[in-house]
Design a binder for these strands. Sequence first.
DNA 1: ATCTCAAATGAGAACGATTGTCAAAATCCT
DNA 2: AGGATTTTGACAATCGTTCTCATTTGAGAT
Lengths: 138, 138
Amino acid sequence: MTGVQERATSEGTRRPTRQRAAVAAVLADTDEFRSAQELHALLREGGDKVGLATVYRNLQAMAADGEIDMLRTDEGEAVYRACSTGHHHHLVCRVCGRTVEVEGPTVEAWATRVSAEHGFTEVRHTLEIFGTCATCSR
Amino acid sequence: MTGVQERATSEGTRRPTRQRAAVAAVLADTDEFRSAQELHALLREGGDKVGLATVYRNLQAMAADGEIDMLRTDEGEAVYRACSTGHHHHLVCRVCGRTVEVEGPTVEAWATRVSAEHGFTEVRHTLEIFGTCATCSR
DNA sequence: ATCTCAAATGAGAACGATTGTCAAAATCCT
DNA sequence: AGGATTTTGACAATCGTTCTCATTTGAGAT
């Protein structure tokens, strides 16, 4: 049901296709979070003809495999970004969308401790902070 | 566009209506996060006839005024909760779905500090921990 | 109590992101 | 090459949410 496997880093049995590569390519070109529709448009501009549904499918698959990061904007739209190395969290401005990457040894430790206290294993967590950045709150 | 005013705590010039009161009432009855549609259904069951659009409008207005909390589920659906209840996070078992509510003063403090360091204001955060619970892991 | 006017409501249409459908095309395996 | 299987693409369908606009309601003046 959840699609989450025991070995989260496994790639499953997905086939390499031109479209999949194209999606991965645009994603690798920007360090910003982009929506599926934006990525689809970018592919079009770049001359790669890929169906919108295919873009959605690939993004989901890649996100499920942990190859890319996915989060929701304040409006509920899903946005994706190439997974940079290292675990970190995001501080997102809800006005201009600017994203700051932050690390939190504190949080990591806390999450681990709390999980252990409740007997949970194989833990993973997501933490997003939304606010108004200095420029936008002026 | 964003609807965020300079005086965030102001109530603006909104009129007290039967519908608004009804929405506030159901919301006050549960300490869980509920979607607009769920709340609308609850109102129906309770005999209060309130239009769906009205529920949406009131929830938005109340959230904008900071009277209630609003956040997005993993699927992008907006869910609301009466503001008074304590803020907590969830530890979810990805196998059986069991959910444990956990509090984290540590995390709260950390999030606040990090946000401030980057000049962010009006911050809110979401944190979910996924893992395998003791029962399911063996 | 009545009148007036802006704000609020309700019903349903409209919208936008995402998902489902299914025949055609691509890939893998032998 | 040949057949099974996955992936794709075009478009219909869904679903949450927002918009439209005629009608109702609340607040203050008369």
